[in-house]
Design a protein around this nucleic acid. Structure first.
Lengths: 198, 198, 198, 198
DNA sequence: GATGAATGAGCCTTCATTCAT
DNA sequence: GATGAATGAAGGCTCATTCAT
């Protein structure tokens, strides 16, 4: 799968895939109808692998909303951003124009789930008083964004930097900001529905 | 430029570029040595256009750090994400593997500047007491991330949604979170250097 | 004309011809219908120039056959082999396959004349007792051959040699051999019609 | 190989080569990197074939210099001039300007060998008293010239003549002239080292 | 008369795909 | 089941030629 991620669909030749698989080019066609199906299979399999990997960890309960959010992001960071799976999103982004079907697949299988998950956690947090009420249909993307950026960074700009991006520090920075914001207390917006300040 | 953004480099045929330009294929080669040079020129020109567009607006002074940050993100949102320029970053991300030279160009011309700008504003904010002290070398990416995501969303997943992403609402959600964080006051982390605690 | 000789017809571009002529490419087409006509004109003109050049010298009379032969070869050597005209034969040889019309032209204008000239001189020499009777329809080519070779050498292999071919020495070697042969007298073939043996 | 000889490199299209070989154009590229390599291979192979063909015959010993010379020229005439191999020299001459590398190859592999061979035979002949002492560094080309001319004639001008060139007669004419010269005995140059005439 | 700009036609080359073995 | 060999289809690029200015 690495080849697809590095070079993109068009620049990835069936011959090279075969070589890396240690078989002849023609052999590929015994298992896949054509290059596009091969590509889809690769994406699908990686996605499945990703799901299984993620699900191993996430079925834990009795966590506060904050803990859930922290856990979700941490898990993603470790299992996806830090692994070979990180290539998938990058690939989807790059090829969405040429293969809407694949983008759709990813949208249905990944994006909608992430969306649902985050909206639920935000709602739980708001319900429990942990979180402020926010525009969750938009906020969820703000939360996801740094994850995505870390992946893109890794695949596209890492090479130009002296040191690799420290995923833990990246995550810490996000969580710090995410929960507490950038402003100092005296500079916070005055919110009528301030919590238990009284 | 649209074709390159939609289809990527490989799937964009010189013939189509020529057709859209209303000239014959050979004519393209009067102005560009080859397809790659054409591609680079397109990216470069768009980037230049982007810079000029941005710089028209950003030379404003006597703004608080918060106002600067808000302004920077707003301007980007309007001038880049909301315009045809949004295709550039998407394109760079997709083709970085095949054309490191272009990725490098973008890194030097865009990313480093954005980095410098944000780090400076963060420092100013921290100096003036507006902002908390944060890990600015990592935080700057967290701030940029939602901008990037909005672009990617637009180019890769917008089509699958009933309504287009509302850039203003997206920005508002980010700013809300960015400055104030998600946690309610009583759930903030206790920070030793908490400001108005006294 | 140099370009045609060096590169051949196909590799000689109208653009370069124009550049060397100090005009624009389109200007060429004001004077020549197309590239082929231009090529023919170049060949024709060079040939005409060659003829005029040669004829200036050759109208001398009262020479013995041997003197005539010597003169003819000398003149050719100086006026053709040693000049830019040498390119013509090389060019004809190279392009005869693609442009039989040109080869024919050369055959009619040059080869047949040379043939006639040499056959006549050989006949005169035989008549006067200067030369042996030889198979003049074939011998004439043997006489021409070294001339041609000197031209080919110059255009195709000269570059690989430390010193340029010395045309005078080349001619001297030919004349020496041509008149006296290689064998020592005692090794000559015994010819019944030996000349002044009686 | 015929196509290259007839049309030259530029006018020989890979498609036609493929057609003559009874395969598809793309098949050619399975065996040759590109058109130039194909061309080189054709030349090289023909040359190799030529060498093998020649060497089969020439390892004969105990021959007088005259016999050696006669044999060499006869063999060349039969094996090269009279065969398809005759195309090679014509091709080299035509394309030397565009592909110096190939001309060099031919120079090294063929010309230098021929040169060495002839110079040696001339020296042997002079040593044994069979031949006069001549300027062998120039004379060798005079000897080769008619061979070359016969080839060129065949490929470029044969078509315009009613009868094909008779190689045997051509060779006979050359040998006749080569050994005995053109002049009758009484018209020979008076050479001090005249042999045993007395 | 001269030319800058434009192009149609064509060739080399690549690569996903097929198929006989 | 695997593959070596072959190819159809397509794209990048070149260049002789045209034409409005």
């Amino acid at each position: 799968m690495g080849v697809f991620v590095e070079r993109g669909y068009a620049e990835t030749h069936v011959e090279e895939i075969a070589r890396r698989a240690g078989v002849a080019k023609a052999t590929i066609y015994l298992y896949y109808e054509n290059k596009l199906e091969l590509f889809k299979a690769v994406v699908r399999n990686s996605l499945v692998a990703g799901f299984e990997d993620l699900s191993k960890t996430y079925f834990v309960h009795n966590l506060s909303a904050r803990e859930q959010l922290t856990l979700a992001l941490s898990v993603f960071m470790e299992r996806v951003a830090g692994s070979a799976l990180s290539g998938i999103p990058k690939l989807i982004i790059a090829e969405a124009g040429n293969f809407p079907e694949i983008a759709r697949f990813y949208y249905d299988e990944v994006i909608l789930r992430v969306h649902a998950l985050l909206v639920r956690v935000l709602a739980e947090g708001a319900g429990s008083g942990e979180f402020r009420h926010v525009d969750s249909d938009y906020v969820w993307r703000i939360i996801v964004a740094p994850m995505l950026l870390s992946i893109i960074w890794k695949h596209s700009f890492q090479v130009f930097e002296p040191e690799p991006l420290d995923f833990r520090r990246h995550l810490a920075a996000q969580l710090d900001l995410l929960f507490d914001g950038l402003a100092t207390d005296s500079n916070k917006a005055t919110r009528p529905s301030g919590s238990s300040s009284a």
